[in-house]
Write a protein that binds this DNA or RNA. Structure first.
Length: 464
RNA sequence: UCCCCGGUAGCUCAGUCGGUAGAGCGGGUGGCUGUUAACCACUUGGUCGGCAGUUCGAGUCUGUCCCGGGGAGCCA
């Protein structure tokens, strides 16, 4: 195939008067009847466009170049020169322009103006060609890379936990059923679906969390993490929920809640510093057009200490405050996002890690404290969005875990392998979970989660 | 799933008391210019979300369904 230079390299090149070939998609074109055209090209390598000067001396100037419009794909070969005008430092003076594909302006949906995110969601096959979604794609890539690098540098093993699970008891919401049964002719046995005739010989679902399996590997390999797709069949219609999303779940053997909290803090500081360093142009774009506070918020968070306090102390601070809350506060209630934001933004004005929640409002696998009333759970709260990470030290005592499972009206038999981890060589261990898309929302300032994943799956929508 | 708001030109929206449809942008044509979401003039463009109802007459009122937005619940 043809050799090309990416625009990101050209714009950082000092090789003026050098010859380059670029290929990309036309964002906008301005004609000068004085005898040349300005064509701005974007190839996805960076948010900036390259300005091409197309003079009328080009052999196809009249029959092709003048007809180029937003959306066309082109190859341009030319000489890079300093730009005499404001707006760009360099520009490519074309010696040859080839049009790969046209984009009929009567029907091409993208115009050289701002579109609503709602409209762009209906054309998810074209929206990565816009500034915002191009920037999101690069940022999502950089954040993925930052996450892997963070864990790899610390000796964590990347574990691939299953997408399809035989357990319907992971306890984190409604699950999608996976089946090869003929839905028009479902085999039954004693009035119920006979899953013994299904593909796996039993009912199967898409995973809602890799945590329980991650614990298996943590209790053999030490420090592990998962980073993969997760599925929830909840009928949630909000700007913060997807039916298919990506989750990061580290799990550490020989680790208590304090170690877990320290990792969560270091993790956030690391990935934020990473994107500020690696994506300055895209971050500047988000800061200018999406949310003018995103860069400052991240810079502050990198430098600040995280406040560490217990749920009970948090409740006390909320009770003593003169702030009027829509939901009243008392010991034992789950905190609403207004409470979390008050503590985070008004009381401390920095990220906080809340620990030791009442056992009644947290999951069965969290380790019981000596007070018998609270568990070793933590929520990491950050300004603007509240909870960004949830984690806990896991219950490692066999008998206590059996009690907690029964107390949650679950059947210990369904958790036989999970319980055996506590029977053979059990050890203190801890971990946390982080929704990848919510992390991207925090970094970009985008308010709707459907705009930070390439192809959002939500109730009633699996297009593309 | 619940509450509130919305769906009108390719896009973003206006549309009064129920009386047969408007603007900006985009597209087209012409003009002008080392331009920057260029600019100026003219022009093009509609099953008013679907179905049913009230009415002489519905974009407008009523019912219902679909879709989107904001909030809530669930949660990541």
């Amino acid at each position: 195939m043809l050799k090309r230079t990416r625009i990101v390299e050209i714009l950082s090149s000092e090789n003026l008067n050098g010859r380059f070939v670029v290929m990309g998609w036309v964002r906008t074109k301005r004609d000068s009847k004085g005898g040349f055209s300005f064509i701005e090209i974007n190839d996805g390598s960076c948010i900036k466009n390259l300005q091409v000067i197309a003079a009328q001396g080009l052999s196809n100037y009249k029959d092709q170049v003048l007809k180029i419009q937003t959306g066309c794909s082109v190859k341009v070969e030319g000489i890079l020169k300093p730009s005499p005008a404001k707006g760009q430092s360099v520009e490519l003076h074309a010696e040859d322009i080839t049009v790969f594909g046209w984009a009929d302006p009567d029907v091409y949906p993208l115009q050289k103006k701002r579109h609503s995110f709602e409209f762009l969601r209906t054309i998810a096959h074209l929206r990565p060609r816009t500034n915002t979604f191009g920037a999101v794609a690069r940022l999502r890539n950089a954040l993925s890379c930052a996450i892997h690098t963070f864990f790899q540098e610390r000796g964590f093993l990347y574990i691939h936990t299953p997408i399809i699970t035989g357990s319907d008891c992971e306890g984190a919401g409604e699950m999608f059923r996976v089946t090869t049964l003929d839905l028009g002719n479902i085999p039954e046995k004693e009035g119920k679906t006979d899953f013994s005739r299904d593909f796996f010989g039993t009912a199967a679902n898409l995973t809602v969390s890799g945590q329980l399996e991650a614990e298996i590997y943590a209790l053999a390999m030490g420090d592990v993490y998962t980073f993969g797709p997760t599925f929830r069949a909840e009928n949630s219609n909000t700007s913060r929920h997807l039916a298919e999303f990506w989750m990061i779940e580290p799990e550490m053997a020989f680790c208590d809640l304090e170690g877990d909290a320290a990792l969560a803090r270091d993790f956030l500081k690391y990935v934020f510093a990473y994107v500020l360093e690696h994506c300055p142009d895209d971050m500047a774009f988000f800061n200018q057009f999406i949310d003018s506070s995103v860069i400052e918020t991240m810079e502050k968070l990198i430098l600040q200490d995280f406040e560490y306090l217990t749920y009970s102390e948090g409740i006390r601070l909320l009770s003593e405050s003169k702030e009027k809350f829509e939901f009243p506060v008392s010991w034992g209630v789950d905190l609403q996002s207004e409470h979390e934001r008050y503590l985070c933004e008004k009381v401390f004005n920095k990220p906080i890690i809340l620990v030791d929640y009442p056992k009644e409002i947290k999951a069965f696998y969290m380790k019981l404290n000596d007070d018998q009333k609270t568990v070793r759970a933590m929520d990491v709260l950050v300004p603007r969005i509240g909870e960004i990470i949830g984690g806990s030290q896991r219950e490692d005592d066999y008998d206590l875990l059996v009690q907690r499972i029964k107390g949650a009206n679950l059947n210990p038999d369904d958790y036989w392998w999970y319980l055996e981890l506590r029977k053979f060589g059990s050890t203190p261990h801890a971990g946390f979970g982080l929704g990848f898309e919510r992390l991207i929302q925090f970094v970009t300032g985008l308010t709707n989660i459907r705009d930070v994943i390439p192809f959002p799956r939500t109730p009633g929508n699996v297009s593309f």
